[in-house]
């Protein structure tokens, strides 16, 4: 297992390097945005870019980029969207709202989704199952920004239960802040709840019809005992990795939801950096998400071995 994990980590680093290099070169190959023809500021803009080292060969620029990271952990400053500010500082500033809203939504969604899935599976083909399955399909089919708009209109505007926008400030763990996050959390949760419900129901339904479940019952276990001790454990082989997967999305945020509820998070941070060709922000974002994505893939793969002892990682046979 250790050898397998180390192999995966090695491959992960290699992949990270290749992705970083490709992204670095591609973003710098994009044509510079131009101002209106004849605008006297154009010359200044070009000169600035040159002075900041952007006219040098790409590989030389990449070398400088890596040197600054490895020697000073300096990811540079933003020169377009947040002029002069270190990009790591902005990134860290914008991380908490995204992290919290998504974390709350997953914390809410996982138990509800799993419980609904179990309930539907245990009541398979009953009206409960049909209702849950129908709602699940609706929730999966309708994009989250539709819920967001509906929640904002009915719960925030009409009923005045919550603020229309997320509260300003950095008191992330205060009650007013939490209350202001609830609409966004709800909007993000519906899809995730539906996803977990569907997965859990499908897996549990299959497990419940397995022969070992019949054996468990014939050995004298009650239905509840058999379900909890055997069926649930088996269906978690699929559900648990999807929980890990969900946590990855915590960091990426949701562009639309953050816009609708005015959450100052990372949602449009990445996109804006590409539009503005704010290279340093783009590279920090790229490297961060790539690392998280690759790490998550390793964690999910390795977790299989822990969740289900029948799965042996790295085994040739």
């Amino acid at each position: 297992m250790i050898k397998y994990t180390l192999q995966r980590l090695g491959l992960m680093l290699l992949t990270l390097f290749v992705i970083t290099l490709v992204c670095f070169v591609l973003i710098r190959m994009l044509p510079q945005p131009v101002v209106q023809p004849g605008d006297p500021h154009q010359a200044i803009l070009e000169e600035r870019m040159e002075a900041m080292g952007y006219g040098k060969p790409y590989l030389e620029q990449f070398g400088m980029f890596l040197r600054d990271i490895f020697t000073k952990f300096d990811w540079g400053v933003s020169f377009k969207n947040y002029v002069g500010r270190p990009v790591t500082e902005i990134f860290v500033e914008k991380m908490p709202p995204t992290l919290l809203v998504n974390l709350y939504s997953i914390v809410l969604a996982i138990p509800i989704g799993i419980i609904l899935g179990i309930w539907a599976a245990l009541r398979k083909n009953s009206w409960i199952d049909h209702t849950i399955s129908t709602l699940t399909m609706v929730c999966i089919s309708v994009p989250s920004f539709v819920y967001a708009s509906l929640i904002q209109y009915f719960l925030c505007f009409k009923l005045d239960w919550f603020p229309i926008l997320m509260k300003a400030g950095t008191d992330y763990f205060s009650w007013p802040m939490f209350r202001s996050m609830i609409p966004a959390v709800l909007a993000l949760s519906f899809g995730t709840i539906a996803g977990f419900t569907r997965t859990t129901r499908a897996e549990l339904t299959e497990v419940l019809t397995s022969e070992f479940m019949l054996l468990a019952r014939t050995k004298g276990l009650t239905k509840t005992q058999a379900t909890v001790r055997h069926a649930l454990k088996n269906c978690m082989v699929v559900v648990l990795p999807s929980i890990f997967g969900s946590f990855i999305s915590i960091l990426s945020g949701s562009l639309i939801i953050e816009k609708i509820f005015s959450i100052p998070g990372l949602g449009d941070f990445y996109l804006n950096s590409i539009t503005a060709l704010d290279y340093n922000i783009f590279m920090l974002d790229t490297c961060f998400y790539t690392t998280i994505g690759l790490l998550a893939a390793v964690v999910v793969d390795v977790s299989y071995g822990f969740i289900d002892p029948r799965i042996r990682m790295g085994s040739k046979k």
């Binding site: 900041m52 400053v77 002069g84």
Partner: peptide
Amino acid sequence: TPSGETYVSTYCT
């Protein structure tokens, strides 16, 4: 703060 051959300022940010 210096940046390449030029400077950037965080004044008024």
